[in-house]
Write a protein that binds this DNA or RNA. Structure first.
Lengths: 223, 223
DNA sequence: ACGCTAAGTTAGCGATGTTCAGTGAACGGC
DNA sequence: GCCGTTCACTGAACATCGCTAACTTAGCGT
């Protein structure tokens, strides 16, 4: 139960080395246990082979440690999205693939995703999302679709709407894993398409047309 | 600070009365403080004027108490959605209004919403969502749209997709209140319309058409 | 060898969820 | 009128949590 790795004290200038070890221990603990409250400072300290207060030499408090974890997660998410975007046949298809990749990322790292995006972040720590390049890159992708004429409007506003849809599915799947969901791939695909096509339609047809109006127009497309 | 209401012990057969008082105290504490961790068993007990272990006479553990709170919240949400549905001009418009009402409910009861829908519920406690009549009623509303020919497919599947979109926006607004959101009413309206119209389009045009395909068709509707 | 300081520890505080043994009042039976 | 049982509830304690203050140890320059 109790592995005491007997960590050697860092050399004189290398005090910051502990920071990296603590961070990695926290991330590993999170992925292994799969539940946030298993990541106690005592558990992290023991895994590193160090005493608890030593963590405070490099992180202001537990939340700061979790924030650092989140930063790493956001970078990984950013890379996943950028990789997905490149696979698309065109800009709009790239958007779709990013949506799918987004949900899959959340499913692959549920506890990380929860900490980053399902916790209440307020005040100074709130801009973690904005500070990440992931959101900025996604807005860029949306802007490409606007330039291509597929979407119309302000890219950041459009991006938020798509983000909401993707996050909704991701968050529900993470929070309610035992809900009787249909086969995942189908569900993800359908929700992402719904959002993409819905955004294209609403942004191009104007925001003031009624929903019934649009449905009527859809009828004419039937043939 | 410390109000000790000196609660009188319940009469012989009325032991269950305490359950109601504890439940109400927990709900009030949640709405007043606005943060979940302010609802400690000691805080609840003190507010009721009773000792801590007495709570365990009526709730298996703290989570059971929170579950009971959630049950009440779901009932209120159900009523809000049903009231909103009646305002719609038709079934599809009723769906839209339910979406708007859903997000507004979350914004009005952010901490309750978080506990119910943004926490991990697993195992036996997972069916809290399914057990609530709110979801069933919403599926009924979707079914009416299917019967009216506005949507096509299995109502419960369609309902999940709309739920995902609405929840996504609600969850983001609750979790990131300091994010630079655009004006709320516009945002909510646009996301709900995106989902509704997107679902109508994807369900009627078939799931296998490409997104670019649909966009091309939308172009023809321009005039 | 000495001193300074970086690097880390020991001990402890208050708060949390939870459990166990016990207490006092109300009721039924005799 | 007394007794035993049961109901409603309490006091004290445990383990764990985040966090802090005060202390110790190891390594560098001189």
């Amino acid at each position: 139960m109790s592995e005491a790795p007997v960590r050697r004290r860092s050399a004189r200038g290398q005090g910051a080395a502990l920071r990296g070890e603590v961070l990695r221990a926290a991330m590993d603990l999170l992925t292994e246990t799969g539940q946030e409250d298993a990541v106690s400072l005592r558990a992290v300290a023991q895994r590193v082979g160090v005493s608890v207060p030593s963590i405070y030499l490099h992180f202001a408090d537990k939340q700061a440690l979790l924030d650092a974890v989140c930063e790493h997660v956001f970078e990984a998410l950013d890379q996943a999205l950028q990789a997905a975007a490149l696979e698309g046949e065109d800009a709009f298809d790239g958007l779709r693939l990013q949506g799918v990749a987004y949900v899959h990322f959340a499913l692959a790292n549920p506890e990380h995703y929860r900490i980053v995006l399902m916790r209440k972040h307020e005040g100074e720590r709130a801009d973690l999302v904005m500070a990440s390049s992931a959101f900025a890159h996604f807005v860029d992708s949306v802007a490409q679709c606007v330039e291509a004429g597929v979407l119309e409007g302000e890219p950041d506003q459009l991006a938020m709407r798509l983000w909401a849809a993707a996050h909704g599915l991701a968050a529900l799947l993470v929070a309610k894993p035992y809900f009787p969901w249909p086969p995942l791939d189908e569900l993800v695909d359908s929700v992402i398409r719904m959002a993409g096509i819905g955004l294209a339609a609403t942004s191009r047809l104007g925001d003031d047309c009624t929903m019934a109006d649009v449905v009527e127009r859809l009828d004419r497309l039937r043939d």
